[in-house]
Design a protein around this nucleic acid. Structure first.
Lengths: 93, 93
DNA sequence: AGACAACGTCACCGTTCGTTGACAAGGTGG
DNA sequence: CCACCTTGTCAACGAACGGTGACGTTGTCT
C-alpha cells in the first residue's frame, strides 16, 4: 500500500491493530507510548513524531519501504535480463 | 529499501537530494520548510513531524510503501532461493 | 589570497508535542 | 438491570518542536 498521507498510515495502523485483536491500551503498553497517542495516530494526527510511528509500525509488524522512482521496476527488469543471460551462458557449456 | 529507523530515512533523503543536484536551501524552499529542518532530518533527528517528512519524500519523488508481513518478503524469498538452486544446477554440468 | 556556495550548528521564540488522569459514551455479556 | 471493556476527548504540565537569524567551517573557483 502506497503511503500518500497521514490518513493512509492511520488506516493501516487501526486496521492492523484490530487484525491482531489488540486494544489501544494493549498496543500502547507494548510500544511504550500513551493510549491517547495511539488514538491520535489512528485519528490521523499529522504532527506525530516519526520515530514513535516507526516503533509503532514495527510492533504491528508493518513493513515500511522507501523506493526511488522506477527503482522497483528497474530492479525487477535488471534481474530478469541478467538471469536470462546468465542461464544462456550456462546452457552453452 | 526497508525503513528500520530514522537513519534509513535520513540517508535516503540526503542521497536523493544530491542525486537531484539540490542544495538544502533549494529543497527547503520547495517543500516549504526551513533549511535547518532539512539538515536536522538528514542528520537523523528522530522527533521530526511525520506530515512534514511525508511532504519532503513526495517532493523528492521517493515512494513510501506499507506492507503487512508475508506480503512482499515472501515474494523475494522465493525468488532468491530459486535463483541459487538453478545456478548451482548449471554449475554442475 | 579573496569570494562565494553550501553545510553544521546555535540561541531565542511562540507553538505544540506526548503524558497523565479523568470523564462521557457506546458496546457486550451475564 | 449491572459490570466491564473500549474508545474519543479534555485540561494541565514539562519538554521540545520548527522557524528565524546568525556564525563558523569546509570546499571550490579565480
Amino acid at each position: 500500500m502506497k503511503v500518500n498521507s497521514m490518513r493512509d498510515v492511520a488506516a493501516a495502523v487501526r486496521g492492523r491493530r484490530k487484525d491482531l485483536g489488540l486494544s489501544q491500551a494493549d498496543l500502547a503498553a507494548r510500544v511504550g507510548v500513551s493510549r491517547a497517542w495511539i488514538n491520535a495516530v489512528e485519528a490521523g494526527k499529522p504532527s506525530v513524531e516519526l520515530d514513535l510511528v516507526l516503533r509503532l509500525l514495527d510492533h504491528l509488524g508493518l513493513r515500511l519501504d522507501l523506493a526511488k522512482p522506477g527503482n522497483l521496476g528497474d530492479v525487477f527488469k535488471g534481474r530478469s535480463v541478467d538471469l536470462d543471460s546468465v542461464l544462456d551462458e550456462y546452457r552453452d557449456r
